[in-house]
Structure formats: C-alpha cells, structure tokens
Design a protein around this nucleic acid. Structure first.
Lengths: 206, 206
DNA sequence: AAGAAATTTAAACGCTTGTTTAAAATTAGT
DNA sequence: ACTAATTTTAAACAAGCGTTTAAATTTCTT
C-alpha cells in the first residue's frame, strides 16, 4: 500500500478530510493533528497556522472542483456529446467527493477567513475553449442564446445540488444511503435529458 | 415603528441573523448578545444554552424554508399554473432570504450539533395535497413519471442553487450585486420554462 | 562516531469560549 | 410603601482554543 506519505502530506491529507467534513469553524487544530496521528505543534511547524493550512486545502479543493471535468471540452466531439460526457463526469466526480460543493460554497459565503487565490482557475477553464465554443454555438443557432452565467448556473445547479441536499432529502423521503445513490443515478439521466432538451435548439428540416 | 419587541424576541431575532450569516460554529454567544444589545447572560437566562437557541432558530428557518411556498397547491388551478406560481414564489422568497438554503443544508450536513424536530413538516406539505396531485398527474400522463424524490430534486436544485452559489458566480464572472440580481431574474424564467418543458408531456392531437 | 540540522514532543502561553453565580435593578402584587 | 418576584448586570468559572517555546529525539553530513 501507499503508506509512504511524509508527515507534511499526512497532515495535509488529514486537514482536507477534517476541513471538508466540519468546516474551518467546526474543527480544531488538535483534531486535525489527531486525525493525522501527530502532535498539535507539528501542524504549525509545517503550515504556520490553521488559517494558512485551510487556505491551501480550500484552494486545492476549489481547483479540483472547477477543473476536474472541463477538459472534455478540449476533445474533438460534438457539443452535445461534450455536454453529456461533462455531466456524466461531474456526477462521477461528485459521487467520489460528495461534500465538496457544500464545502466550497459554505466557506466562500463568508470570505473573511482569508482571501483565496481564485486566479488562474477561470483562465484554465477558458483554456479549454469551452466559452468560445458555447458562444459560437449560440451564434450558429445550435444552442439557446442564454448568458453564460445563466448557462453555468443551469448546469451546476442540477449537478451539485443533489449532493448538497442529501441529508435533507434522505430524511424527507426516508431513504437509505443505497436508495439515495439509486436516485442520484436516475437524477443524472433526468438532468442530462432535461438540460440537453432545453439548451439545444432542435434542427428544423424545412 | 415596531420597536415593541420583548427582550426574548430581540435575542431570538438577533440569533436568527447571526446564526444564518455565520453558522453555529462561526459565531459566539457574546456576538449574539451584542447584536441584540444585551448582556451575554441574558441569552442563557431566556434560552438555557447556545445549542437550544440554535435549535429553535434552525427549526423555524427550516419550516419557513419548506412551507413558505407550497400552499399554492391548495388552490384551484391547473398543475402547470401551480408549478409556475410555485417557482415564482420560491424565487421571491429566496430574494428576501438568500442565505437560508445554504444555512439549512450546511447545518444539516453535520447533524451532531443537536437533533432537529423535522416532524410535522412533511405532514404539512402533504396536507396541501401536492403529492397526490403529482402522482395523479403522472397516472393521467400529464407529467413525466419520475420518482417524487427526483422531481423534488429537479425543482429545488434549480431554485435554491442560484442563491447558494452567488459568491462563487459573482467572482467567476466578475459581476456586481445588481448584475447578479438581474441574472437571478433571468434564471427564474429559464428555470421555469426548462422544468415545465421537461416535466409536462405535450398533448398529442391524434 | 561526532556534531549540526531537522523533526517531534510535552508543556505552557494568553485569550476566548459557553455557562454560572450572586448581586443589583426593575417590575409586580398587595 | 413594602415585599417578593422578575429581569438585568458584571464578574468569575473551568475548559478549550490557536500558537509558541524549549527541550528531546531523530536524521543528515562529514
């Protein structure tokens, strides 16, 4: 097994798990140290402060969150195929990391904890050419002319929210974990068909 | 003006604002007391503990959140009209209380803080007859046969997420508050048309 | 093997936390 | 007006917080 993690990496990994599960305010330095099997002082020895460690974890999570699935737009496929694959991969990513959307949006909502370096993320997304491709498709009448902010919201809403709302929905509908996972797989299908059906303008044969 | 709030009500009101803005872990009893213009000890004099005060605030917010817009299903309108009005009111509610979805889902995601009484909420929703009406419409072929959990997810995703993602979207797209509010108004239209278009099966005239 | 550097530890620092106490101030009852 | 009950206050409590210190241990260099 890959037990060859350095102390620094062990702390970073433990911090990621604890921060994402409980949030910056909801955990302590000692808790992170214990999760990493270390002394408290080592956390600050390697990362100076709880804030700084959090900043590293958050920025890594944000980058993962935003970039994990957009590289599909570099491929040579039809826009509809790309959209389908994008949603497919987004759900795959979120099944592995279901807490990341809530973590990102929660921590971002009160940004006084520390300023984050979002810089570069938008550039990396832009580098895939996705924005040009969408605008081009709008010009050609392939997809609906909707502001890209609204377009992103439509897609992200339907991908992220089902994972964020899991505790609420499980209770309200009395579902087990397995049953909710089944609903998530169905949701992926519905969301894909709904978004494709709404965004893509049917070809008129006249 | 209605400055006739009792001490207890002032604390409850201040606690609501502070808890929703910063979360249970992100604020202190003294902060709530100061926001209410009171001594710290008064918080516990009236509400016993921070946990108990939070429980009251959370349950009230959850009830508001889940019940504020469902009474439209008691009215005598077509299902499509009800759905349109429901989404309209959901957005209206969220423009007034944009932080509630994030608050509810965040605090619910680590339920060890205290157990909440969700009981009754589902019953009150059921009392509007919305579930029977939806199942009936599915039987009659008016709307798509989709599990009600998935149906709720489709609607809630598209209503709640645009408000939860505001900090992220404002940064990513470099938008001012006013510009984002404009996008939200547009989003309401898009979401309504997309959901109606997907859920309702077009009448076939043959 | 010896000494220097890096790592790890236990202990302590000052400060803030939620909560409690006991006295002061206000209100209510007669 | 006097007493009792209620409300409000300032002060204190132990416990936990993030962080620092200085000594112990390990690792590296020669």
């Amino acid at each position: 097994m890959s037990k060859e993690l350095s102390t620094e990496e062990k702390i970073r990994e433990a911090a990621k798990n604890v921060f994402i599960a409980k949030g910056f305010d909801g955990c302590t330095s000692r808790e992170i140290a214990k999760a990493a099997g270390m002394n408290v002082a080592l956390v600050n020895y390697y990362f100076c402060s709880k804030k700084q460690l959090f900043k590293l974890v958050f920025e890594a999570a944000l980058e993962d969150f935003m970039l994990s699935t957009v590289e599909v737009f570099k491929k040579d496929l039809s826009l509809e195929s790309k959209m389908r694959i994008f949603i497919e991969r987004e759900f795959e990513f979120l099944i592995l990391h279901p807490d990341i959307p809530r973590f990102i949006l929660s921590e971002l909502s009160r940004g006084d904890k520390c300023e984050f370096d979002h810089a570069g993320i938008l550039d990396k997304i832009a580098d895939t050419g996705v924005f040009e491709e969408l605008l081009d498709a709008q010009e050609k009448g392939i997809i609906r002319k909707v502001d890209l902010t609204n377009l992103m919201l439509l897609i992200m809403s339907n991908c992220h929210y089902p994972f964020m709302a899991k505790p609420l929905m499980k209770y309200l509908n009395g579902l087990s974990e397995e049953e909710y996972q089944e609903r998530l797989m169905l949701q992926k299908q519905y969301v894909t068909e709904m978004l494709i059906g709404y965004l893509f303008i049917p070809k008129t044969n006249n």
